[in-house]
Nucleic acid binder design. Structure first.
Lengths: 207, 207
DNA sequence: TCGTTTGAATTAAACGTTTGTTTAGTTTTT
DNA sequence: AAAAACTAAACAAACGTTTAATTCAAACGA
């Protein structure tokens, strides 16, 4: 599916509104108005509102594997590899945070006729890479053995998402404001906290 | 605000539908049908659909502080206190998971005219208790000092929520099915993982 | 114990809006 | 001249809410 410039623009506007107000809380008239187009263009370009969401997710969740492989092949010990992996995951998710929010919310909606295939296969690939890295570290005697590997990803991504979904609360608590300051906090302090947490867990018990 | 039996029943049905399909994705006709009542009863009892959400959140987020205080006053060392606190938080949130899901997604919606006061004040109280416990542990030389306390709660709750929001995925990965088995996994394995993670973090660096 | 009164509970139907989508026609590009 | 892009208007369906009428249960005076 090839997208022209105008289609990408419409999807960008729709993504923002979907993340803010939800899919059902956003009307095609709202999207059209904000994107500066006629309502009929949504059906014209995407077929329907729901197929537009499909196109959005397809567009956003492409190319994950290639990037991840590149990061995982970087030089360094097991602890460095964990750091690189977490930093990459947080960056990738923060960049696509709106699309992820829509998925998190709509994934459980039984009415939604949308393909979450790309999202799921991305999760599976992601998990396999994490599993391999940790198992190798365990065999090398660097990581503890009594670790629930499947729950590492919820810890990494969950920490980010909970922070992001409650950002109104945490930004007030931490006295942060402004988009740039938020991005900076995520890429430095929040990422460091997650790296520290996971490494502490992996280094805790008996090897 | 006193709620009679029928009102509680309606709220329970509404909560389930809101969590599954979203607030905007659920119609009052759907709620009325599933609850076995006439549509007009929603306006009659609550004033409007949005005020019904207000009543739901007010109803669900009451009594948190008292329970939490009770748990925190239990005997035990710092590690035991951390265990008790995390077990309580996970149980409390899993019990009210639907209401929390609604809040997580509606909290950022600028159109929603709902009071999140109770939710916020609960978060603040929760944070203060955690902060006090960890600072005491640090002064006693039990916990590491280079900890970002504000980000502990995102790690605890985020791990749970990410698991819950993607339960379709994780249940397939872990080969779990059935409501009871899920509850059991949450209360045992998932809780243990989070306890292990936080204790590893708190015991990691220099005291 | 009776019929009557009263206020709350409940109902079907209608209200005006808003929804996503389509149509038929016009403009722009190739 | 053909194809693609775009528009205003209309469509039926669904939305949350209100109305006016009815049922119900408890309270009351005789």
């Amino acid at each position: 599916m090839e997208l022209n410039e105008k289609q990408v623009h419409i999807l960008k506007v729709a993504e923002k509104l979907f993340a803010e107000n939800g899919f059902d809380g956003t009307s095609v008239r709202q999207i059209a108005k904000e994107a500066g187009i006629n309502i009929a263009m949504i059906s014209y370009y995407f077929g329907s509102k729901e197929k537009m969401l499909d196109a959005l997710l397809f567009h956003r969740f492409a190319g994950f594997r290639k990037e991840m492989d590149k990061v995982m092949s970087e030089e360094g010990g097991y602890h460095e590899k964990i750091d690189h992996m977490i930093a990459f995951m947080i960056r990738r998710i923060h960049d696509n945070r709106r699309a992820y929010k829509v998925v998190n919310f709509e994934y459980s909606n039984p009415v939604r006729q949308v393909s979450f295939e790309r999202y799921i296969s991305q999760k599976i690939e992601n998990y396999k890479l994490v599993e391999t890295l940790i198992r190798n570290g365990q065999e090398a005697g660097v990581f503890a053995s009594d670790i629930n590997i499947a729950l590492i990803i919820p810890t990494v991504l969950g920490t980010y998402f909970h922070f992001y979904y409650n950002k109104k609360f945490f930004l007030a608590l931490l006295q942060i404001s402004g988009e740039d300051a938020i991005d900076d906090y995520v890429y430095t302090t929040l990422t460091a906290h997650i790296q520290q947490t996971v490494k502490a867990l992996l280094s805790s018990g008996s090897p």
